[in-house]
Amino acid sequence: MAIENVIEMRNITKRYKIRKSRERFTALDDVSLSIRKGEIFGLLGSNGAGKTTLIKVMSGLLQADEGTGETLGYDIYKDHKKIRATVSLVAPTADVGTDNNLTVRQNLEFWAVVYDLEREKREERIDEMLDFLELRQYENHWPMSISAGNRQKLAIARSLLVKNPVVFLDEPTVKLDAKSAAAVRELVKKINLEFGITVIMTTHYIYEAEELCERVAIMHKGKIVSCDTVANLRRNLQRYDEIVITCDQPTTEALNAITAIPVIVSCEYADGKLTVGLENIRSNLLEILKVLRGHGVSITEVATNEPTLEDIFVDTISGGGV
């Protein structure tokens, strides 16, 4: 296992029993995956794609039927108890694991003992988490009396009490309103940046993965159909960025000069608009504009069109991957 990888899964297959049936449902089908230390990794897919099952296998909660793998260097078959003790998992709904008979602070005190946090460190760590997650004002509130977003924060606070090096977040913003979801996303960035914790999150919100994740695995029907950085996924799928420039008719020389730029894949003028397809809009836009101006083309408007992760997701699951 490479040193910088905290998780390494090879050819993992998991089949679920179906009640009163000999047939089995294949939830994971020959999944291989590496996750690097310190990254925010996204598992993206529609419902039933296998995201949660994969998280459970990686976090030692579920045993795979086939394949090999290690989490933090521990074998997923032999050392699943050690894995469970050294990773944190936040379930999809905030209420899971939260005791409504305990206040926010008492919940954290309870889990600090269960997670075997040293007595001297407990109060200090709980205070740190309450401040870090901006839950201080609710510390004596009952969980039922605070918002769903704050309950999700409480669930995350619980998982961060022991500062495990890997945190699994299973659909952390599901059922949250836009404001609470944005707060949780900020939190994910913050725990990754400030504590250096590797975050593995599942989501079926594409914008969320795009905003947070350095790398994304797209899952479909138990398989990983694509796994890369968002930029590489775009490139591999040949979903190029696009610039639409409203301008005068460029000369043939001007069009040739643009086409000669190495990253340009298409260049076409129609209806007063020049549409340029290229690999990386951000680093080449200025050069294109410079070429046009150099050939005396008068520009009135520039619009850009980058493919979103949603475009990639749709392309990937409809086309079977890259």
Partner: peptide
Amino acid sequence: DKRLEVYNSSSYGIWA
């Protein structure tokens, strides 16, 4: 109550 799996995520959760 969906607490069993959360308890299982700690070392001695369910037995404790």
